[in-house]
Simulated scan of single mutants.
Amino acid sequence: MFHCLRTLSAALALMREHDESLAAIRAAIDEVEASGEPQPFDSAAFLEEMHRRSALK
């Protein structure tokens, strides 16, 4: 009987972790969707900015 209770307790703990993980994933998806339309990425401008920042250090 004790073995069954330990097994059930472990299963419930795993289910809680799974639910928490799903909630975090859903929250991240909601955040991305709320951030607006994607903007084009300018790799040249990005590299210039990174070089500028590293020169300031």
Rank of each mutant, 00 (worst) to 15 (best):
V32M: 10
H18W: 11
D42K: 08
T7G: 00
M50P: 00
K57P: 03
C4E: 08
A10N: 14
A34W: 01
A11Y: 08
D30S: 15
H51D: 13
R52N: 08
A34V: 00
A11N: 13
Q39F: 01
E49Y: 08
L56F: 03
S35G: 07
R16H: 12
L8W: 09
S21Y: 13
S43W: 07
E33T: 11
A28Y: 06
H51S: 11
M15P: 05
L14F: 08
E33N: 12
A27T: 02
H3D: 15
E48T: 12
E17D: 11
L47D: 05
L14N: 13
M1E: 10
A45C: 07
F2N: 02
I25Q: 03
H51V: 00
F41C: 06
A45M: 04
L56E: 15
H18M: 12
M50Y: 02
A34C: 00
S9R: 14
R53L: 15
E49G: 03
P40E: 03
A13V: 13
A28L: 06
E48V: 12
L56Y: 03
G36K: 03
S43A: 13
L8F: 06
D42A: 08
S9T: 15
M50H: 01
A23H: 01
A27M: 01
L5D: 07
L12H: 10
D30H: 12
A13K: 13
E20V: 09
M15G: 11
F41H: 07
A13Q: 14
A44V: 14
D42Q: 05
A13Y: 07
R53C: 08
